[in-house]
Design a protein around this nucleic acid. Structure first.
Lengths: 240, 240
DNA sequence: TCGAGTATTATTGTATACAGAAATACGATG
DNA sequence: CATCGTATTTCTGTATACAATAATACTCGA
């Protein structure tokens, strides 16, 4: 039987629809389109030089990703992320990253483990140099490896979704160096627990890692700036 | 600021696309379209008396829901659920339903609590009568209330997705009456913990509720029938 | 001046037409 | 008879045309 297990992210990057989808997602995540902004099919289409058809299809996908909301016969609006959403996501991620680490302890391959070690090593280097961009990228990659390593496409998919979602909040403004190092230290601990085959510890550490990231985010001003629950978040400093 | 919080399930049931989407989802979940079966746009369109446009848009949504997989320039294929997927989902749900119950303990409204009590009461009645259809419906509704009650649209959304996903497996073949009653008993315990404001207990009970449902599913033959990991699941008896 | 009702416009929803890719059938050639 | 290449067919991908709906502007009367 054929293996239909194409990498999820592929999403047809060579079709117009795929490109529109990716472009819009990026623009929403990067903040080009503000919360509650209306996206008009023709306008987007003209901007990207395509007709409404691929735009509409991309819209349907973005809606399911939770990035926009389509009101029938009215329009498509960029969904807002509230402070509470972010909090909820970190709660959920805390549990699921824990589970992921637990599963990864059993399933991780030698290659994945090696890439993890390398990732942590590299991150240390960049931390010492203050290269925040690379830090962020390595951080993302670390979690990605973990997601792959758990060997559960369901869990992987969910975690990726959430991870991507909160990246909206992290945006350009990267975390401060202090959290960057602490985060990397936590990565190392998680890695070592996995390496040692201690699933319980790995789970617990991954769990805390998320909660720490959230705490840090809160301390760094998310709540001070956008205090009220209903307020929308524009950016933050949380380092996961 | 307008409240865009439309009910998630609405999905535009009065547009052609919405109807196509729902119909296809139902047909996939009910097993009318088998795993790996190819869905052709024109065929579906003709069957439902609509053009390809709404069908295509529905396809894009179904893909994101994970029910079909679209291969560019080739076609749309019904995705398979492996036994491992089901297992993973129950693991994930166990954690998240626990969290959901915990949150609900704080946030549940009087109306929701009342509906829950009514639900359990009714389910008891139908259990005694052997009305399996109603039991299944009430079971779904119980979890739905819980999802609403946690007051977290992120969590609610994720749980609904998973819930729907495993319903594919449950399909027509409903659980045996024994599990139905046990399940309802567990619902009652969860409800009572929530009512008593005991979040820890509610979490723990909801947690176990999922694991029990999974165990029951396994005992009822899921693994005996479709023993190998890679095998696709057609149906089962798990009662969540 | 205000408001109800209506015309107008803008935008989404759907159907269809056309283009391009993939699968299949077919036939020439060795 | 096998096989490669090419026509044919069947699909999906995209653009456009048309219909329906919602928002807006306008007119007329009180």
């Amino acid at each position: 039987m054929a293996n239909y297990d194409i990498k999820h992210e592929v999403n047809d990057k060579y079709s117009l629809r795929g490109r529109v989808f990716q472009k819009l997602r990026e623009d929403i995540l990067s903040g080009k389109y503000k919360e509650h902004e209306e996206l008009k099919e023709v306008a987007i289409g003209e901007e990207l030089g395509v007709s409404r058809t691929p735009v509409r299809e991309a819209f349907r996908q973005l809606e399911l990703e939770g990035l926009i909301q389509i009101v029938p016969n009215k329009g498509a609006y960029v969904t807002g992320i509230t402070v509470k959403d972010v909090k909820d996501i970190y709660m959920i991620r805390s549990l699921l990253e824990g589970l992921c680490a637990r599963l990864a302890t059993e399933k991780i391959t030698k290659e994945q483990l090696e890439e993890m070690e390398e990732n942590i090593y590299l991150a240390e280097f960049h931390a010492s140099k203050g290269h925040m961009d690379q830090m962020a990228e390595l951080d993302n990659r670390f979690h990605d490896i973990l997601y792959e390593a758990c060997d559960s496409k369901m869990l992987e998919h969910t975690l990726r979704d959430y991870h991507q979602y909160v990246m909206r909040v992290r945006q350009k403004t990267l975390s401060n160096n202090t959290r960057g190092r602490a985060s990397n230290d936590e990565h190392r601990q998680i890695m070592e627990a996995i390496k040692a085959g201690d699933a319980d510890k790995a789970e617990q550490l991954a769990n805390r890692h998320m909660l720490n990231a959230y705490d840090n985010m809160v301390r760094n001003g998310l709540y001070e700036i956008y205090g009220e629950e209903e307020r929308q978040v524009d950016s933050d400093d949380g380092k996961n």
